[in-house]
Design a protein around this nucleic acid. Structure first.
Lengths: 255, 255
DNA sequence: CCGCCTAACCTGTATATACAGGCTAGCCGC
DNA sequence: GCGGCTAGCCTGTATATACAGGTTAGGCGG
């Protein structure tokens, strides 16, 4: 009667392991959009779990838009899970170099710290867990263009602090260690606090664009970061399709 | 034992009825952000369902970002935040109504004008072409929440100005006339000019989120708009996957 | 050959039960 | 009075089971 055995891998939860396997097969291309996914009873047999557990895995993937289910028919891979490049997660250094400018990173802080409530919550770790923290100012032609305050999950990228952030941005390093499978951006306009203002070299009343970004690799949160940009000088763009990327003056601005 | 009786109301599914009741209490204000929600066992007693069913209702509401749960503590109403999805275009009136609030539009201006260089460029028309222009302030519960300055391509929507924008948002009207096939969002943080500040009722130094949006129908630019939101209160969100929309305190903010 | 019915398979919902582990209030002993 | 332990409540996960209703293929009878 199949005791509730602990699964072997690092991830203990059965429904997560089922989700990860299906996501991996989609990522590898073994499962194509429109393809039929194993039915609940097939997953029960394959993973040795109960049907409710298989159901939960499939239902959550449906919620997330990965799968499409219909009673009596089966479960299928959603057609358009490739909405690529909508709002790119891009390496700030690439963006700067693309403009033909020079990029330089100044590492202000890099070290270990204990996660406070907010950080623990964001990284899905327990309160007080040790996390890695870095504070980097990115310069474009010797002018500050972004302050990056980052917290990294040591379970995913244990050697984060040994990277040299002057030659490789945290983003570059982390995508190498753990490919990004999901992201979240929350954008706000804020009045920067004095420290940020100093790093960005801003006047007192200059607004700031603050992007809170989290990235996942599989089911694990890899990192979260607060990115501060000097307000009006920076544009964050999101497009539905690749083109038209033709730059246009924003109304109300002198070109 | 408790037989699996059919619930009385139109909605038969138990977990849906539990979700609806909780959502109703939040909409009515009986449950405020941060308030504790009935525990699973309390719902079991109140609705006569099994714990798994109560669990499902609460878990789905957590997925949807309505509730926040933590083991050992309980289930709580998520802090309300105003947010807009950057990766899709929605009707602001719908968003407000979904939050259980009332929407009202104040038409400040509506008329014809000749396109200046920026507008002509954005709408892909020639300089000096006649375009339609509207300036609308959207109110949520009688508080200004968005200033919408819009320019419309008369070749696509010639009757734009005859619409009644108090009963139908420009977005609603335009999507009816010309379905959106592509869009572009450019986000900046700006210091609002005095007029915008007045419309939004902001203090002098309060930053603003400005979204420049263009939408296409086929190959033609339908409209472009400058949307101003009160800065730190408003969040633009972009995520690669639908769930989990579990709200997380942005680092550095008190929740 | 065609139409109907059924068996097999699928998801959707619901139940009762179990064990784990986080958290807290209160009691007990020192 | 104070520290530590425990009982009780909470969520998280997992199990086995049940019945419903949608869909399809195949078999049986006219």
């Amino acid at each position: 009667m199949t005791k509730a055995v602990k699964p072997a891998a690092g991830e203990a939860r059965h429904y997560i392991r089922i989700k990860e396997q299906i996501l991996a097969e989609i990522a590898e291309g073994k499962l194509q959009p429109g393809d039929r996914v194993s039915s609940e009873s097939e997953l029960v047999a394959a993973f040795g779990v109960s049907r409710m557990t298989a159901n939960r895995a499939l239902r959550e993937l449906m919620f997330e838009g990965v799968l499409k289910r219909s009673a009596g028919i089966g479960t299928f891979v959603s057609p358009k899970h490739l909405d690529v490049d909508l709002l790119q997660i891009r390496n700030i250094a690439d963006e700067i170099l693309e403009r033909g400018h020079t990029h330089q990173a100044i590492v202000v802080k890099a070290g270990l710290m204990k996660a406070d409530a907010n950080v623990a919550d964001a990284l899905e770790l327990i309160l007080g867990a040790e996390v890695m923290h870095s504070l980097i100012v990115h310069m474009e032609n010797d002018r500050p263009i972004q302050v990056e305050e980052r917290y990294v999950n040591p379970l995913v990228a244990p050697d984060y602090l040994s990277a040299d952030f002057r030659s490789m941005t945290p983003h570059e390093y982390l995508t190498e260690v753990a490919p990004i499978t999901a992201f979240e951006h929350i954008v706000q306009a804020v009045k920067p606090d004095p420290a940020i203002r100093k790093y960005l070299g801003l006047r007192n009343d200059h607004p700031c664009l603050r992007v809170f970004r989290r990235t996942w690799s599989g089911e694990a949160v890899v990192t979260c970061a607060l990115l501060y940009y000097p307000g009006a000088q920076y544009r964050l763009e999101a497009r539905s399709t690749k083109g038209p990327a033709r730059p246009v003056a924003i109304l109300g601005e002198k070109q």
